[in-house]
Design a protein around this nucleic acid. Structure first.
Length: 209
DNA sequence: TGCGGGATTATCT
DNA sequence: GATAATCCCGCAA
């Protein structure tokens, strides 16, 4: 009986989270979503989790640095799909990076997750990143966090809101920082002047200061 | 602590 | 055929 009540409570909580997250992603400018995602928690159902401390917005047709800038291709199709899906892409011949999709279906906008502060499942993260020397570097960088969290080709297109793909983003009550730092995006050659990277000021897990 | 170069392949021109 | 939303290691200081 008690367990049933607990379960019901948990489900209400989870569904509230989903409502919050749906509102976070749906019909919203990726530059707003990028700030909103700071201090939220990326969760793998296997127990690994980390707090999002650095993000970048990619703004579709009017952003020359976005994969979606030239329109839809097989690779970037998920970016044009429903908000709340995860767009995962392969780059530099060996790395995976992940982006929650936001905005309106068809817009092609998303937010690159660039760094996490590891919270739980550190042993699994270390095992997934044998080359990593320091826990500080486990999730400090977009490809590092994917490797640590177990995100790759198979996770392209999973739904973060339902959590059916094994991953979700959770609001555990911590608000985004009052004064997020806006900075230039990393590793791009076009639209470099846009300050569409944001991070938590002073956080040691941010990839570049 | 910080820099420079090599790794390695899907994707698009 | 060139490029890429990067990482890691070695070396210098």
């Amino acid at each position: 009986m008690i367990e049933l009540q607990f379960r019901a409570l948990l489900e209400i909580r989870v569904s509230r989270r989903r409502v919050v997250l749906k509102r976070t992603f749906y019909r919203r400018d990726p530059r707003v979503v990028a700030v909103d995602l700071l201090n939220k928690v990326l969760v793998n159902a296997d127990g690994r989790s980390g707090r999002i401390v650095e993000t970048e917005a990619y703004c579709g047709a009017f952003d020359e640095a976005a994969h979606s800038w030239r329109g839809m291709t097989p690779r970037n199709a998920v970016m044009f799909d429903q908000p709340g899906l995860l767009y995962v892409y392969f780059t530099y011949g060996m790395h995976w990076c992940c982006n929650p999709v936001c905005g309106e279906p068809g817009e092609g906008v998303a937010v690159l997750l660039r760094a996490l502060a590891p919270l739980t499942g550190l042993d699994a993260m270390r095992a997934a990143r044998p080359a990593c020397r320091s826990d500080r570097d486990l999730c400090r960088g977009p490809a590092r966090l994917c490797q640590a969290m177990g995100i790759g080709k198979l996770q392209n297109g999973i739904d973060l809101i339902s959590g059916n793909g094994g991953y979700s983003i959770i609001d555990d009550g911590m608000s985004p920082p009052a004064e997020p730092v806006a900075a230039a995006r990393v590793g791009i050659t076009r639209a470099v002047e846009q300050l569409w990277r944001w991070y938590v000021p002073g956080d040691p897990y941010v990839s570049r200061r």
